[in-house]
Design a protein around this nucleic acid. Sequence first.
DNA 1: CCGAAGTATTAAACCGGTTTAAACATCACG
DNA 2: CGTGATGTTTAAACCGGTTTAATACTTCGG
Lengths: 350, 350
Amino acid sequence: MAKIDDVARLAGVSKGTVSNVFSQKRPTSKTVREKVLQVSRELNYVPNHIARSLVTKKTMAIGLTIPHGNFFFSVFHNQFINGVVLEASIYGYRVLLDMIPVEEVKTPSLASYPIDGAIVLGPTEEDERIDLLHQNQVPFVTVGKIINEGLYDATTVNNDNDQIMRDICDYLVGFGHRNMMFLNAGRHSTVSIERTEGFVRALQEHEIELQPHMVHYKPGIHSDQYMTYGYDETIRILGERKERVTAIIADDDRTAFSVMNAINELGYSVPDDISLFVICGDLSMMHQVTPSLTGMDLQPSELGAQSVKQLMHKLGVLEGEYPDNCIVSSTIIERSSCSPVYSRNESVST
Amino acid sequence: MAKIDDVARLAGVSKGTVSNVFSQKRPTSKTVREKVLQVSRELNYVPNHIARSLVTKKTMAIGLTIPHGNFFFSVFHNQFINGVVLEASIYGYRVLLDMIPVEEVKTPSLASYPIDGAIVLGPTEEDERIDLLHQNQVPFVTVGKIINEGLYDATTVNNDNDQIMRDICDYLVGFGHRNMMFLNAGRHSTVSIERTEGFVRALQEHEIELQPHMVHYKPGIHSDQYMTYGYDETIRILGERKERVTAIIADDDRTAFSVMNAINELGYSVPDDISLFVICGDLSMMHQVTPSLTGMDLQPSELGAQSVKQLMHKLGVLEGEYPDNCIVSSTIIERSSCSPVYSRNESVST
DNA sequence: CCGAAGTATTAAACCGGTTTAAACATCACG
DNA sequence: CGTGATGTTTAAACCGGTTTAATACTTCGG
């Protein structure tokens, strides 16, 4: 690979000038510029990204840490990543995936991070990733609330989870549902904690007594029940315990499908007997299936884009004032999996 | 941030020694090592990844280029990425996402790639990404056949698309289907080309005449019909043209759902009237829906892992002989969306 | 026509590590 | 005690760019 000295020599100018031609940080005369570019083309020269990073102290890459496991992530993650990558590319930034298999967090990788900043998706209560970033002085933005904000000079992008749960409950209670079951995501992420809190609060507002069967958490990703969570809980609560639940709120579409399976197996149907609400799922797919699924549009792609914007501010790439927190709005997408509780009786009387 | 000189000074040794303590490339005495590590801890020192890369000429990162657009990618991509990230982490490599919004491919990014190698998913017939990598002398592995193999010293990981189509056709013809419709992926990727060829060949083997309505390609990602492709074609062919198609092969689950919608709308049902086969989809979800969908297990995660292995060989990280091409096996996962053609009559007679 | 101000260019220092070649220490052996 | 073998440590060169401070070349007002 040709290097800057080769170009400089052949073009009859100094390294500094060649550098300026490419970085455009200082003006160069047209004559020189064209000569340099011509030589570069002949030599197939491209500035070495690493060498440049070393002195500018910018890698032009941001890290994206996604809590994973040995499993796939969801459509939400997809769209989120898309939002991140697309927005980052606007500022000339690349995205480094950091789906750390949890055990490895403990090895401080024996070297600094080759990134200028990071986006942390779904922080947990005691998140090692955050400690690590903070310790290495990597600026970061979290997507989802973070505990001990002050400690980290934290910036957060989030949905308004409290509002989301209130909206959902208002919607379902408006349909007459009072015995609802919430199949939340994993117990540890702050987002899921916020949602449970929001759910409980919403119930209070509607003067509905919170019962033990109403809130459940998805088991850990390595658990056997991870995939069958929705099915299992539905069978257990509605089948074995015979709770008269009339509406189920599922955290994601996968869980919802699993729930639907159980519902069918129990001889019920959606939405006539039981309404089903999906918080976070693939809207286009939810539209295609039968019955189509009512759910929330969390705008994952927008979450991704906003988190990049926030990070760019932190990095000084974007200027001007900006708030430390950014809330991305979410709206209910009404389809056909939720209906008034009395609809069954109606259809019977018809 | 503390640098190596600081550590060297405080520990009373030379830079070179400190370097050796961290890189472990040369032995150091226990006394010195402990002193250095102790000082490093006090100073919160971590070797600078960039500086190291500059001289070792290794970034310990590989690029992953996924053809995207402004849209989400699928579960296949998910699992593929997971396979890549997980396998790469074994060798200490990180993954840099390179979902280049197509226009930008043309800007050679004004700097070399900060990666040691790349994985190209779904190459197209004339793939600019490949030309670019080749030109920048970045070793790469493609997932999916590549045209002009020889030109690029190419290594490929792939499913046996010919065999896949043959298996599917054998399966469906075994059920008595002879009028099948194949809703393929986009026209440009080499994978989709291979599949069409395989399909045509399989039809010949069964002495079924290929008719124009039997093969379709998904429109471009920016097209209005991208999302409704399955629905549109089904309505057009089965509804308007009244072709007596008895089986539909859909490239992905999204398309399959869309097809199912159309089938229902036309007053048919799956699988009684029409069998539905999904080539590439989310198996767990396909299991949950009603009717559950029969499809192929392409082992995306394994494809990802294998492509990393191949790349590691190219980079000299893994040693020993290895073939230039790697075929990942795929098997039919039988569920309930495909059945014999005469099943309708049977059920009527019951 | 001179001095000031502005524009291009350059040589040398620098970024923070690794690597090389030489120096130094230690120890065993004849 | 000299010699060689082995094992550690070091000073200096190097990786391939950017940046600084000095220098040369223009332009322009008075």
